[in-house]
Each structure stands twice: as C-alpha cells, then as structure tokens.
C-alpha cells in the first residue's frame, strides 16, 4: 500500500508498544498480500484467473468478505460493486481521452455483482473477462483488523491510519479525542476540516485524486458501475464516521456515488455522521468543529 500509514499507540513500555505494532503490521501485510490485485499469488488473483471457468474454493475470511460485498451491493442499490474494476480498461485518466460509448457499454455488460456466483465455500465469476477488485474495502478491513490486533495486545489508547482510513482504539489516555484532519481537495497536504474522534472508524472518499477535464467538462474516477461513466455533481470529498472503518469506507464510497443530492439524506438515514467538501470549497455535514 503506497499511501502513508501510521500507527499511534500508547503503551506502558516501548517493548509493549513494539510488540503490538509488529503484530498489527504483520496483520496488514497478510491482508494486503492475500487480496492484492497486483500479486499473482494472491487469493484474489486466483479467483480472477478462473473467470468463466470453474468455481474457486475460498476460506472463511474470503467468504465473509464476499458476503459483506454482497450485503453492501444490496444496501446500496448496486452502487457498491466490487466487479466494477474492469472499467479501468476503458478509462485512462492520464491519456486525457474519453473512451468510446461502445467500449464502456461492452465493459458494463461484463461487470455486475449478480454475475458472481457465491456459494458455501466457493466463488465463481460466471463470465470470461470478469474481475473482482477488493480495493474498495480491503484497506478499510485491514485497518479494523490491525485495530483488533492492537486491542488484543492490550492497547487501550491508539489510532490506526492507513492512508486516511482510520480506526481509533480509544481516546488519548487523558480521555481527550484524537483530532483527525480531513484533507483539503485543493491543497491535499493541508487539512480542510478537523474531526474529533474518541472511538470508531473514519474513512474518506474523494473525486479529486484522478480526473481529467475535456472540453471544459470534468470527468473523475468515481465511476457509476451501472452506466460505466463518472458520477456527475458529487462532492470533492466525503468523510464518514462509523463504528468500524470498513463501514465508514463503504458508506463514503456509496455516498460519493449517490451524489450531492442523495448522499446526505442516505447517510442520515443510516445514522452515520459525515462531512463533505464541495467543488466550490464549501463544507457541510454534521461533523465538526470546522476549520476555515
């Protein structure tokens, strides 16, 4: 994982902290290796290689992750779809060129979570060319898993941060909240907002990392799996707080796909605190306090 990662743990001795950190890092590495799209030896690569062929036997962890993906697909009306990664084949944001309507339509025909056959202990991608991508939730899962490992090592005060996906293990020892900075989409090295967090997870999703402007129109990498085209009129960034980083991440991803109008109402209905930064730099949501 290329993004900056950070573990901040309070412990009674250096040895104690080192042991917890070592165990947490090992857990993150394990998950990264198991579900990386880039590693030939990963479980994910094995599943993708068998697309259109036989079902692949999977272990209980992979099975539970796929069940979660299934649940997220259902609850988001199809917006959260881990088979949508194939759209990358058409969309190259460095090229500055739009894909053809047909190219996109062909890929949309291949993708789709309902085409994934998930049975007890087995998964099968029913069409040749299909591909799963855990990028949308494996990192958030790793954050929660690392937090669990730290808690099991006896850490009661700490924070796990994998490139902006965060899980807090408990407040600072004096009881005060962690101050989590939310990146400014205009100046990503600076914090636009600061969110106080004593426990739970926080994850953000943004459309500013990869995009291209063609004929005055902005095309971001937030692609609607149903159309294959970038979502219009959404937030520059959306951050969600939930009991687990995984839930926060899923809600942020789906929220961004829902767009400016539908996302706040949907998050309110879920009962998840959130905040956003709009294209014009305006901020909103029910997470505070705000930093100008």
């Amino acid at each position: 994982m290329a993004s900056p990662c950070e573990l901040r743990l309070y412990a009674t001795s250096q040895g104690f902290a080192d042991r917890a950190a070592e165990a947490a890092i090992a857990e993150v590495d394990r998950i990264e290796q198991k579900y990386s799209r880039y590693r030939h030896t990963s479980v994910l690569s094995a599943i993708n290689r068998a697309a259109g062929g036989d079902a692949v036997t999977i272990d209980s962890e992979t099975s539970a992750l796929l069940q979660y993906a299934d649940s997220a697909y259902q609850q988001s009306d199809g917006l959260f779809d881990i088979s949508s990664g194939v759209l990358r084949r058409a969309w190259n944001f460095k090229s500055g060129q739009l894909p053809s309507e047909r190219e996109v339509a062909n890929l949309v025909a291949v993708l789709g979570w309902p085409k994934v056959e998930l049975t007890a202990g087995k998964v099968r991608l029913s069409q040749v060319g299909m591909e799963l991508d855990f990028g949308g939730f494996a990192k958030e899962y790793a954050v929660d898993a690392a937090a669990r490992v730290c808690a099991e090592q006896g850490i009661a005060h700490g924070l796990v941060d994998l490139g902006g996906d965060i899980r807090v293990l408990g407040p600072h020892p004096d009881g005060s909240a962690w101050q989590i900075g939310i990146r400014d989409p205009q100046q990503p090295t600076q914090a636009k907002l600061v969110v106080p967090l004593k426990s739970g997870g926080l994850a953000s999703s943004g459309d500013y990392e990869r995009f291209m402007v063609i004929a005055g129109k902005r095309y971001s990498h937030i692609l609607d799996p149903r159309s294959g085209w970038p979502v219009e009129n959404t937030f520059r960034s959306l951050s969600v707080v939930a009991p687990l980083c995984l839930l926060a991440g899923t809600a942020a991803t789906v929220g961004l796909l829902k767009g400016v109008i539908a996302a706040p109402a949907w998050l309110d209905e879920l009962g998840l605190p959130h905040c956003w930064v709009q294209a014009n730099g305006q901020t909103g949501g029910d997470l505070g306090p705000w930093q100008s």
Binding site: E61, Q67, A72, Q75, R148, P243, D268, E269, G271, L272
Partner: peptide, 26 residues
C-alpha cells in the same frame, strides 16, 4: 451512532452484521 431511521436502520444493521461476520474484524 446517531439514531438511524427506518430503512436506513435496517441497511445499517445488515451491513454491520456482514462486517462483524468477517473473522479478522472483531
């Protein structure tokens, strides 16, 4: 967590249950 409403509450519960079923998470 704020009080979730109606359908949202059940969506949240469904997602939470699926998340908590993942061995490494809890």
């Amino acid at each position: 967590q704020k009080n979730a409403r109606g359908q949202g509450a059940s969506a949240f519960m469904a997602l939470s249950a699926a998340a908590l079923a993942i061995p490494g998470i809890v």
